[in-house]
Amino acid sequence: MQYKQAYFDALRDFAAKDPAVMADLAGGRCIEDGRAIIIDYLGQHCTVTHPEGEVTVRDWPPLPHEELIIILQYLAGASGLPCREQWLSFLELPGGPHHFAPFQQEAIFPLAKALGDDSEKFLQAAETLGATKTDLGHVGAIIPAFPRLPLAFMIWLGDDEFPAKANILFDASSPTYLPTASLYMLGIAVSKRLLAAAGC
């Protein structure tokens, strides 16, 4: 029921806004005389009809409800601000400390467990999501969840003394695009897609 209400709220906000304005602020483009928006999502072209809010990603099966909500919220709430290239941990997001423990359990710990000893597999999986390599962590990748909302994924490889660690960072402009609850869902969704791309 919680996801259902969140979806209807996101759809209402999306349908009420001018598609051309949303596309411009979100880094997408309008097609079909404003009846649809094309936006990149994890390196794939995503089509969102307006005002219906039907979301399709080429060559992907139907998206889960969490990702549908995130995409509609991103379009409806995009500020248009450029990335600041300053990275924040989930703890540093507004209200982040209240949800950090479950975020670790659902998004961060699985990355360290599955990919903490295989940097090549991590990078190859990230590339399928449109990532570019970064020098964050022992091995890191910046994944463009949306054109103006990147996430930085990083791993510190484990050894005989220390277990592998991972983290997910958000650009400082992220809260102007999505509320923290949605950034929480986004981090988990991208983490799951990264693990799936790695065959984990």
Rank of each mutant, 00 (worst) to 15 (best):
H45R: 14
T49I: 07
D13F: 09
H50S: 09
F122K: 01
G27L: 09
C46A: 14
P110S: 12
D33V: 03
C46K: 03
E85N: 10
F103I: 06
F14Y: 15
G116D: 02
P64G: 08
Q124R: 07
E85L: 06
H50T: 11
L93H: 02
G27N: 12
F14L: 11
A112D: 04
G80S: 05
Q105I: 07
G43R: 06
L93T: 00
T47C: 11
H99A: 09
E66R: 12
F103W: 12
E66P: 01
H98P: 03
R29C: 14
G43T: 13
S79P: 06
F14V: 08
H65G: 15
L88F: 14
A26R: 08
G77R: 12
P97M: 05
I38Q: 14
L93V: 00
F109L: 14
G77A: 09
I39L: 11
P51S: 09
H99F: 02
A107W: 05
P82F: 14
P102Q: 12
I69A: 05
L11E: 05
I39V: 15
S79H: 03
L68P: 09
H99E: 00
D118M: 01
L88I: 10
E92S: 01
G28H: 05
E67P: 02
P61W: 12
E92A: 08
Q73P: 03
L93F: 01
H99Q: 04
Q86H: 14
H45M: 00
A107D: 07
C83E: 15
I31V: 14
L123Q: 12
A10I: 10
F14D: 00
A125F: 07
I39A: 01
A16Y: 02
L11R: 15
G28I: 03
P82I: 15
L93K: 01
A107L: 11
S79R: 08
K17E: 13
W87T: 13
H45I: 12
P19W: 04
A10P: 07
G96A: 00
L93G: 00
R35N: 15
E85H: 11
E106A: 07
H65S: 15
S89D: 08
T56M: 03
H98L: 11
G116K: 02
P51N: 11
G116I: 00
A15D: 11
K121G: 15
L75P: 10
H50W: 10
E106R: 08
A10F: 06
A78L: 06
L68W: 02
E32D: 13
L111F: 06
P64K: 13
I70E: 00
P61V: 08
G80H: 01
